[in-house]
């Protein structure tokens, strides 16, 4: 039986289970248009805005790398690392429409040597860790031109 797929955090992204492309879920202030990720529900970060109305919006699925690095050493809990530990890359991605930078892991199999500031990346949903027959999901970034997870030749 295929493992159950569960988001590792509720309400931060869509999983694409319905066939639609996955996306980060942010908020857009109905007063001033400021975006936020993760979504804000009670206050707007703009000091000149007192709005308390926010709509949940899907953020741009593509952006450009603002900077990148990797994690050569196993991060401490509450990160749940695979055993044996496999290093991964992290990127900060500029979303043009929302005018913000958002972080995330890069899909497995990509090394820093394959990344450059300014490269275009696309959002995917991938397994963060597996526990008790459940795949816990998180958003990751895939360099355009790299192979999608699960589609290796």
């Amino acid at each position: 039986m295929a493992p159950t797929r569960v988001p590792a955090v509720e309400g931060w992204f869509t999983t694409g289970n319905d066939g639609a492309a996955p996306a980060l879920l942010g908020s857009r202030c109905e007063g001033c248009g400021t975006f936020a990720f993760p979504a804000e529900a009670s206050y707007c970060r703009n000091p000149d805005c007192t709005s308390t109305s926010f709509e949940t919006v899907e953020l741009s699925r593509r952006g450009r790398i603002w900077s990148y690095t990797d994690a050569r050493y196993q991060p401490p809990p509450p990160y749940r690392a695979a055993d044996p530990y496999v290093p991964f890359c992290l990127v900060a991605v500029e979303l043009a429409a929302e005018k913000l930078v958002v972080m995330g892991q890069v899909v497995a199999g990509v090394t820093v040597d394959e990344l450059t500031v300014g490269d275009e990346v696309e959002l995917v949903v991938d397994t963060l860790y597996t526990e008790d027959g459940c795949d816990y999901l998180v958003w990751k970034w895939r360099p355009l031109g790299a192979t999608a997870p699960g589609q290796e030749a």
Binding site: T34, F35, R45, N46, E98, K99, V101, V102, M103
Partner: peptide, 25 residues
């Protein structure tokens, strides 16, 4: 605001979409 440089421990920066301010990043 908007603080457009990613800061520990955040997941994202502020959005500069509403301020007409500097481009993100």
């Amino acid at each position: 605001f908007p603080n457009t440089v990613i800061e520990m421990p955040n997941f994202s920066t502020d959005s500069a979409a509403s301020t007409g301010g500097p481009e993100a990043g």
